[in-house]
Design a binder for these strands. Structure first.
Lengths: 341, 341
DNA sequence: ATGAAAGCGCTAACAC
DNA sequence: GTGTTAGCGCTTTCAT
């Protein structure tokens, strides 16, 4: 970064003024073709690259959005769902030429705990000097409120947990999706279907449970309490939950797991017990992560429209950056039929 | 970003000059305690946050390093090895208060193909205005050369493929690691051990193959050509390779897979064929990714010292930013004994 | 210990 | 079409 050529050098080299060089950079149509050419050549010779900070200082937007990730960063890279989510956001950003600065708030990075007061969290974000934020992960209620009140545009992947939040969000329609998942099971003739939830804490988890309940009651089927078991979205918890379900009702014929990882954990247990899927028990997951399509898994699941959610999110921040007030969206999921249901 | 308080506002509010406010920000020891206090209070009241671009323009380093990822971005978030690698780099960066800007060069983002000439690639990187780069993924030879000649410090995860490259790198000692892996197999009394490689293209893959060869020849064992099969680091290829190996030698008693994913693919095939691991065939992988430790996998494998590699990489760029010429490092791997060998 | 003033590299009126 | 000039928000001599 030492001794980089500046606009003034280029100007001297090309025998024009700084302003002309600047115009060539930003609005070449205002400059005569010959001059443009001369200036461009000078730029190349001097290996000139504009200083983004100087441009930014003049209100030039060198758009950068912060990909704000809550919870441990490792999960961003390791948890298949969040990884896929982040990847589509990044790709939409890149397609629009927007830089992406990753900001993880897991304790290994900047622990969210560090931000006691509203203002210190906001300030932390302010100093990043990005033009917008896309939120991914499980945002705490406090931070959700802080974020909603910032002037920098923000768009969140997933419905806000705070009722009446004004935060712009894009989410998969988890309620309809899970309803469809369970209906699919019922359509297969299954009548004793269990649910493995993702715990009571997360909105997506509650939505998926509600879909399960709705599908059953739509068919006039009773909800059996012991057939609803909490997991925590990890494969190990799915395995445990599956065992519990089998204890509760050995005649169980189907299970809806609230995500693929838990479904895979459940599958593992069934395999170990020598049961066959889907003949003995049909299994359906949610998310359609990469692992679900592995040849020895081949899990039937509900898929997010990943790319669509990602680009809707990016569109929302971009609109926000343009001064508009973007609206939230719910995006349909789709059934991916594979071998387990 | 509109209407943010600036230094001048704070100065007026506190009844001092801009210079004093700036001093409070950067070198408070030069300002009287009382003034510092007054200014700080004014800052809080006005929710002042310094403008990073203005500071940068004055040579203030607001360190940001670019995490440059080659190949598809999805892999960063989805491929377990690269994900873990990126996470440790990010964490080391965060621990030092360095911002991280992710730049993926997969075709879905900014395809590396776009950069025909040396200078256009360099220029692309220049405009990111970061202070250093950490390279992750499989860097092409051309880009490796370009990167090596940049003034911005660069540190790469993995040995350069170009012989004699001056690029600073940090790598796991794949050669010793794989030698140890195969020795472990031999120590178990196995004598007919197969190798699933990651293909001839990648340096790490070749190093791991060389380790296999070395371990065998150290024991005076012959290398059987048909027991060395190419995969491509995916689970599916591991599965295929395992089948090939079994065809070549039904009496095979061990396999070293060049990464965990392929080992897991191989495990799947063996399971489907009703063979038991490790009794019939012992399997050892490489990388120690999260999947290897899953309860129903429990793969014996060679682990990278992830955190150490990540922090060595960050230390290297940081030294580079300080004007030093950092040196490359090779970091030892370690055997993680689990159920498959 | 504090203030005044000159830039950092660039953009955007406003003149010519 | 192109040049002149005044900032953008901050840091940093140089005075006082």
């Amino acid at each position: 970064v030492a001794g980089r050529a500046k606009i003034e050098d280029v100007a001297r080299h090309a025998g024009v003024s700084k302003a002309t060089v600047s115009r060539v950079l930003n609005r070449p149509e205002l400059v005569s073709a010959a001059t443009v050419k001369r200036v461009r050549r000078a730029m190349e010779q001097l290996e000139f690259t504009p200083n983004r900070h100087a441009r930014a200082l003049n209100g030039f937007r060198n758009p950068t959005v912060g990909l704000l990730f809550f919870e441990e960063l490792r999960d961003l890279f390791v948890n298949p769902f969040w990884g896929a989510a982040a990847a589509t956001v990044y790709e939409s950003l890149a397609a629009r030429g927007i830089d992406c600065s990753v900001i993880a708030l897991g304790s290994a990075g900047y622990g969210a705990e560090r931000f006691s007061s509203h203002s210190s969290f906001e300030q932390f974000l302010q100093t990043r000097n990005v033009d917008g934020f896309v939120l991914v992960g499980n945002v705490g209620a406090d931070q959700e409120a802080d974020l909603a009140s910032m002037e920098t545009p923000v768009a969140m992947w997933g419905r806000p947990s705070v009722p009446g939040s004004t935060l712009t969000y894009v989410d998969s329609d988890n309620l309809s999706g899970s309803t469809e998942a369970v209906r699919h099971l019922l359509g297969l003739g299954r009548r004793r279907v269990g649910l493995i939830t993702g715990g009571p804490r997360l909105v997506a988890s509650r939505d998926r449970r509600d879909g399960y309940l709705r599908a059953l009651s739509d068919q006039g089927l009773p909800v059996v309490d012991t057939l609803v078991v909490d997991g925590d979205f990890t494969s190990a918890s799915g395995r445990r939950a599956m065992a519990e379900l089998l204890d509760a009702d050995p005649g169980l014929d189907a299970v809806f797991a609230s995500n693929d990882e838990m479904a895979i954990g459940a599958l593992g247990l069934l395999r170990d017990r020598g049961m066959t899927v889907p003949d003995d028990i049909a299994i359906i997951g949610f998310d359609n992560t990469a692992a679900a399509s592995a040849p020895d898994v081949n899990l039937t699941t509900m898929s997010h429209a990943y790319a669509e959610v990602g680009s809707a999110l990016v569109e929302a921040v971009v609109r926000g950056m343009a001064g508009e007030k973007p609206s939230s969206r719910l995006i349909a999921t789709s059934l991916v039929r594979r071998a387990t249901a």
